[in-house]
């Protein structure tokens, strides 16, 4: 025998539960409560705000790129890439600065990548967590935020003058390397820290040394993050003007346009042209330059940076597909 439905006791339940009411019959069983309604609303708001932020980011970028491309269109051609500037830089192409930028970035990478990655390995894998390490970490993070002009002045003092390199490709590359190091160190540390500690402990318990653990387990599984950090810094080094302004870049120098000499025009002690610097010169220092030439230089510089970035994205996707846990 079923007991008759006791309304009084369910009223008591209402009181006990306050706002969160318990459904009394089937019709109420599948109606959303006010909490669930609110959930739906907040979900939509969050989605919309995030989408808006992304659009705010993307729309100006696309606008800039389109504008640049349209303005630069008359100047863009293959000969624009492989000709030197001539007629006091009011005509011709960008071969000399392009090659200059290539070598600047390449040499700075050769310096910064090994030092930065190994320093990151030390800080994340070996260094004990004491006040000294913390100060070093703080310094590295802060160094990443130092304006590039400060790095330039440091480069003048340390490399051009103190180390006696003079204003040269080497001094400029070293300055770029110093500028990119902090971020390479930080991104390396973060990539290493993403490898679970349990893997390391398992290796140590098997009698592997720290270095064996790093070489066999930690580095192979963090290499995608490390490389991404390094490559992003390459594109930054390619775009910066200030660090090379005083340390090794020149307004103008002619290069051979043909043969092997065209690709290896600079010795380490020579000064060189660079794209970012060239753009600055064309825009502010030289009279009578057609705007198309300026925009063309900008497009090549941005194209270079975008190409390097897409390379890093591609590499990341490839390496992540091989990630093993």
């Amino acid at each position: 025998m079923n007991e008759p439905f006791d309304a009084k006791s369910s009223e008591n339940q209402y009181k006990l539960l306050g706002e969160l009411t318990v459904p009394l019959d089937d019709s109420e069983l599948f109606t959303a409560t006010s909490v669930e309604h609110w959930k739906q609303v907040t979900e939509k708001i969050a989605w919309f705000v995030c989408l808006l932020a992304t659009l705010v980011l993307i729309v100006p970028m696309m606008a800039i790129l389109t504008y640049l491309l349209v303005q630069a269109w008359p100047a863009l051609s293959f000969s624009f890439l492989v000709e030197n500037p001539h007629n006091y830089m009011t005509a011709g192409g960008i071969w000399a600065p392009l090659v200059g930028t290539f070598w600047l970035v390449w040499i700075s990478l050769l310096i910064a990548a090994p030092v930065g990655v190994l320093a990151g390995v030390y800080l994340n894998e070996y260094a004990r967590d004491n006040w000294c390490t913390r100060i070093i970490n703080l310094a590295v993070v802060n160094l990443a935020g130092v304006p590039s002009i400060i790095h330039a002045l440091f480069g003048v003092g340390a490399f051009v003058m103190f180390a006696g390199m003079g204003r040269s490709l080497l001094a400029a590359s070293c300055t770029l390397a110093v500028m990119t190091l902090p971020v390479i160190i930080t991104s390396t540390r973060e990539a290493l820290a993403a490898v679970p500690r349990a893997f390391r402990e398992a290796c140590w318990n098997l009698g592997a040394s720290r270095w064996q653990t790093i070489r066999t387990i930690v580095l192979p599984n963090s290499i995608s993050g490390i490389l991404t950090g390094v490559i992003l810094q390459v594109s930054r080094a390619a775009g910066e003007t200030a660090p090379i302004l005083f340390t090794g870049a020149v307004f103008f120098s002619t290069l051979p346009e043909y043969g092997i000499q065209a690709f290896f025009p600079y010795g380490l002690g020579d000064r060189c042209m660079a794209l970012s610097m060239h753009l600055f010169t064309l825009s502010t220092q030289v009279r009578g330059v057609t705007p198309a030439l300026q925009y063309g230089t900008a497009v090549v510089l941005i194209g270079l940076v975008l190409a390097v970035n897409s390379l890093s994205i591609g590499l990341r996707v490839y390496l992540r597909s091989r990630k093993k846990w």
């Binding site: 893997f199 402990e201 290796c203 098997l206 009698g207 387990i217 846990w325």
Partner: peptide, 29 residues
């Protein structure tokens, strides 16, 4: 550590093949 074998409660397969997992310590030795 070579004289002492350890098995901890959280199972941790190293991100290597099964064969390499077991061959890891002998190789290091």
């Amino acid at each position: 550590r070579r004289r002492v074998g350890m098995v901890f409660p959280l199972p941790v397969g190293l991100p290597l093949t099964i064969y390499e997992n077991v061959a890891y310590a002998p190789r290091r030795a």
